[in-house]
Amino acid sequence: MDDGKEVKKKLVDELEEMGFPLARAMRALYHSGNSSLEDAINWIVDHENDPEIDQMPLVPMKIEIEDFEPSSVSEEVKLTAQKLRKKSQKRNNEDDMKSVSRREKERIRVGKELQEAKKIAEENERKRFIALRKAEKEEVNRAREKVRQKLQQDKVERRGRLELPPGNHASLKTSTPVVQENKVVVSTEAGVNLTTKVDLMRECLRSLRRYNKDDDIKVKRAFETLLIYVRNVARNPDEDKFRKIRLSNPAFKERVGVFEQGPKFLELCGFERVEGGKYLFLPRDRFDLSVFESAGNILQSAITNPFFGLLSTEE
């Protein structure tokens, strides 16, 4: 913009006294020909909305020392200048208010975004916690299921060793755990606890073995025959033919009845003598699966253990 033109400092000072900024005063004087305050003010009126009106122009300023007379300005121009100052002040105030409003809106927007981000983070954390708890619960359930399956498999294997049917025995009579002398025992329908009954059955077979230790073949055959009777009842508790044994039956008499402990072992399993002692009979309501499973285990041990009943009273 420096094209040799100069603005008079005196006119610049007077415009500043009227309230116009220095940059606007110099620009107005430069573009109005630097002739008078009135022309400069009129230029400001015409160009007050120019975007660069408040930019400082690169023009020299002429200082006239000899001229001390104030420039003559009409009242109309003074009023115009006053209106311009008020208008400019009002616009500045409005700009300030708009700026404050923008800052407040921005603050509110940022606050909302932070609040929303916090809410999302809390929700994600809650979902993560729920998922973690669910995974832990599923892991516990899987572990329990593995234990349950292992117990079930062990039960099936035990029944397999006894050649018992793997079916559901929920309809069979079950035993009721009770506490006696600080030991957990199992009561049977006869009022004899299973621990005692198991001991009696084991001792019965030991006696049979000890008193006939010179006839191992017959003893083993007696054990095997008793195991067949026990398995038949355990597999088919509703079949009367397996729950009734004729003592005079030649096969029974030769294999089991020849030994005093043979019929006694069956009586410990729940059989009772009926019809004048001619038969051993197990009433259906006296059938106890746990007793027959224990009997089968004892017989299996007696058959497979060559030292059963020979070394001591405990195997």
Rank of each mutant, 00 (worst) to 15 (best):
H31S: 07
K118W: 05
F271I: 03
L162H: 04
V45D: 06
M1P: 06
R202G: 05
M1Q: 09
E17C: 05
E136S: 07
E239G: 05
R144W: 08
E123W: 09
E14Y: 02
E163V: 02
R128D: 10
K146F: 05
L266H: 05
G160Y: 03
E113A: 14
D3S: 06
E203W: 02
K119L: 12
D50S: 11
F307Y: 15
E145H: 09
T174L: 08
L58S: 13
M61P: 00
P21A: 04
L282C: 10
T304Y: 12
F271Y: 12
D215M: 10
S175C: 12
R24L: 07
G160V: 03
V12L: 01
M56V: 00
K5G: 04
P283Y: 08
T196P: 04
N92D: 14
F129M: 09
M18N: 02
D3Y: 11
V230M: 03
Q115G: 08
L208S: 03
F68C: 10
K241M: 10
H169N: 09
D54I: 00
E139F: 06
K8G: 06
E64L: 15
E224C: 08
G270N: 02
A295S: 11
T313E: 15
L280S: 03
V186T: 04
D46A: 12
F223Y: 10
N212W: 04
E64S: 14
V256S: 02
R103F: 09
R221K: 15
D13T: 04
E181H: 04
R27Y: 00
S36I: 02
E66D: 15
K218R: 15
R107I: 08
R159W: 08
Q89D: 14
K173S: 07
V147D: 07
S294P: 04
E123A: 14
D216T: 09
G19T: 01
V198T: 09
M201S: 03
N182M: 08
L114G: 03
D13Q: 03
Y229I: 12
M201I: 05
V230Q: 00
K98R: 14
Q89L: 13
M1D: 07
K90T: 15
K183I: 08
K87N: 13
T195Q: 11
G309M: 08
D3P: 01
K264C: 07
L280G: 02
H47V: 00
A251L: 12
L151V: 07
D46E: 12
E157A: 07
D50Y: 10
R243L: 07
D285Y: 14
D50T: 06
A40I: 05
K112D: 06
L15D: 00
N297V: 11
G4W: 08
L164T: 02
F265R: 00
R144Q: 13
S101V: 05
A190V: 06
A131Q: 12
D54T: 04
Q153Y: 11
A170V: 11
V198W: 01
E267H: 03
S312N: 15
L151A: 10
R210T: 07
R126Q: 11
S175K: 01
R231M: 10
P237H: 12
S74C: 08
R284K: 15
Q300I: 14
T80W: 02
R221A: 14
R235K: 13
K8I: 05
S88V: 00
E48I: 09
T313L: 14
F265A: 00
D214V: 03
M1N: 07
F308G: 08
D214N: 13
